[in-house]
Amino acid sequence: MFIDTLLIGISSGAIYSLMALALVLVWRSTRVVNFAQSGQAVLSTYIGYEICLHTHNYWISLPLAIFAGAIVGSLVDLLFMRLLISRAKSGPIAEIAPVIATLGLLGLIQSFIGLVWGNTFQQYPSPLSGKGFTFGSHVIPFSPQNLFIVIASAAVLAIFGIIFKYTDLGLALRAASFQPEIAQLAGVRVSRVRNIGWAFAGAAGAVAGAVITPTSTLSPNSLDLLFVSGFIAAVIGGLDSLVGAVVGGLVLGIGFSFILQYIGGSVTFLVGFVILMVVLLIRPQGIFGHKVNRRA
């Protein structure tokens, strides 16, 4: 039972990590918490769903959904965030303008999805079985799809890790988030690098949406709760730490899984709220965050 709960926790934790990673990537590049992240993820998942309807092949739709997620992320930055940041500098809502604007974007994306695909629940099936592995006579709740979720998330995290650590692009991304002005002086094209950060975030969110949706249903609001979990995970890890996002996601996923198993499912988000409060009040920079970088 303990191992089962742990495995399920790792699987959902992997998804939270991806969402948290998306939030952290945007936060590092633009100092904005993107409340539309779940909207972008669900839009890319719908694109994957549509491709899957025509091709009947999940394995074709998955990379295309991820690509669509990157495009959507990049477009949100180009068409929307740049305008917002240049315009909403002062005035009565300057401080909260990014929050409000990304919320507006979330509503816009979700009603757009509703207009195109309707608000009914859709199935985005994966060829992998949702039934748990069997060991002798014992069926555990961990299914091949869960295993795939863990593998896909680990792959994404590894790719991002390699990009950030070993490539020039990763160096530029880190420089642009650490000291934008100095990075600019050093020849980094900061606005382009930021845009790549948004595209990466969109892709990470798309992976989360496209691998989790086969285990349940797809609707315009189906990833809203994932955003909340991802946010809590990102704050636990420190909003500007990529490693923190992964650790925070896993901690939260495993924690939620044990609460679900031993206390009951309905209190998970209340517990999440309490965890969030405790972290913010005791260690506001998160477990892996840097105090100096936090501007809140």
Partner: peptide, 22 residues
Amino acid sequence: ARLSGPYLAGTTLALAVGLPTI
């Protein structure tokens, strides 16, 4: 009072999701 901007927004959002489950 100790939080600001996006932190407060996210925290209150988590509250909005969590509280009705009481």
